[in-house]
Simulated scan of single mutants.
Amino acid sequence: MSLKKALFIIILILLIDQISKIYIKTHFALNDDITVFSWFKIAFVENDGMAWGTKLSDFFTFISDRSAKLILTLFRIVAVTCIGFWLVDVTKKKKSKTLIFAISIIFAGALGNIIDSVFYGVLFSDSDMQIATFLPEGGGYAEVFHGKVVDMLHFPIWSGVLPEWLPFFGGKYFSFFDPVFNVADIAISTGIGILIVFNKKAFNDKPKTEIHDSESHNNLT
């Protein structure tokens, strides 16, 4: 896969991700939700930290929430820069399409969430108890690098009380599953999943001609 095709995939994912986020941000107040199906909701939440809403300050209590947010955003920028260099390198070396595709969607997802963290605080007003305004006159709800990631996809597939016979969790209420995420999160998770499930195919360094010759030799023997 060429770098141009990889860039097309990245731009496509970024457009879908950002259009969906901007629509939610400008049409929903925080915590508003719409039931599409019994197992799928559009639910607007904002994530100020890492996965599952956790924050660095939850682990390092000596760090303020504001400092933790800045550190996390800067770390994301460094990480996505490294992923970008990795993508350019694997395309130049003509690595497998599986590897290039996986890195491309991981890069797109990471960049999509970085855009929220870096710019959304300046571009939008606060969403608490109101629908946010794009480019508000009085300024946004936060400074650059302190924006919150917009999430909206919720799949409450099942919820109920677990059977009593289950060890440890029997008789307790359980919901599968509670996290709310976005298109960027899906891209990142899918890319990582591809690298794990199709590891051998993704990191196969043998050129196609070499693989073909090897298969032909095995058939002859």
Score class of each variant (00 low, 15 high):
2 S>T: 14
7 L>P: 05
7 L>G: 07
8 F>I: 15
8 F>A: 15
10 I>L: 04
10 I>K: 00
11 I>S: 10
12 L>V: 13
12 L>P: 07
12 L>G: 12
13 I>Y: 09
14 L>M: 04
16 I>H: 02
20 S>F: 08
22 I>A: 13
24 I>M: 15
26 T>A: 05
27 H>C: 14
29 A>N: 03
30 L>T: 09
32 D>Q: 15
33 D>Q: 15
37 F>D: 01
37 F>W: 06
39 W>Y: 06
41 K>H: 13
41 K>T: 13
42 I>T: 09
45 V>H: 14
51 A>D: 09
51 A>W: 01
52 W>G: 04
52 W>Q: 12
52 W>D: 13
55 K>I: 07
61 T>P: 08
61 T>C: 03
62 F>T: 11
62 F>C: 08
67 S>M: 12
68 A>Q: 08
70 L>I: 15
71 I>F: 13
73 T>Q: 01
74 L>H: 08
76 R>W: 08
80 V>T: 11
81 T>W: 10
85 F>K: 02
85 F>C: 05
88 V>K: 04
89 D>N: 10
90 V>Q: 00
94 K>Y: 03
97 K>R: 13
98 T>A: 14
98 T>K: 08
98 T>P: 08
99 L>V: 07
100 I>R: 09
103 I>M: 05
104 S>L: 04
105 I>Y: 07
106 I>L: 01
108 A>H: 10
109 G>H: 04
109 G>Y: 03
111 L>P: 05
112 G>E: 05
113 N>F: 07
115 I>R: 01
117 S>K: 02
117 S>W: 06
119 F>I: 06
121 G>C: 10
122 V>I: 15
123 L>P: 11
123 L>V: 12
123 L>N: 10
123 L>R: 11
124 F>S: 11
125 S>R: 02
125 S>Q: 03
126 D>H: 09
126 D>P: 09
126 D>W: 08
126 D>R: 10
127 S>I: 10
132 A>C: 09
134 F>V: 12
135 L>F: 15
136 P>M: 00
136 P>S: 07
136 P>K: 00
137 E>I: 04
138 G>I: 05
139 G>R: 04
140 G>A: 07
144 V>W: 12
154 H>Y: 13
156 P>F: 06
157 I>G: 10
158 W>V: 11
160 G>H: 09
162 L>M: 14
164 E>F: 09
165 W>P: 04
165 W>H: 11
166 L>V: 14
167 P>L: 00
168 F>N: 13
169 F>T: 14
170 G>A: 09
171 G>Q: 06
171 G>M: 06
171 G>E: 11
175 S>T: 14
175 S>A: 14
175 S>W: 07
176 F>N: 08
177 F>I: 15
177 F>V: 13
178 D>N: 10
179 P>F: 08
180 V>C: 11
180 V>Q: 08
181 F>D: 03
183 V>H: 05
185 D>N: 00
185 D>E: 05
187 A>R: 03
191 G>N: 00
191 G>I: 00
195 L>I: 07
196 I>Q: 02
196 I>L: 11
197 V>I: 15
201 K>E: 15
202 A>P: 03
203 F>H: 00
205 D>C: 01
205 D>R: 00
206 K>C: 01
209 T>D: 11
210 E>W: 02
212 H>N: 06
213 D>P: 00
215 E>N: 10
216 S>F: 12
218 N>K: 12
218 N>S: 10
220 L>D: 12
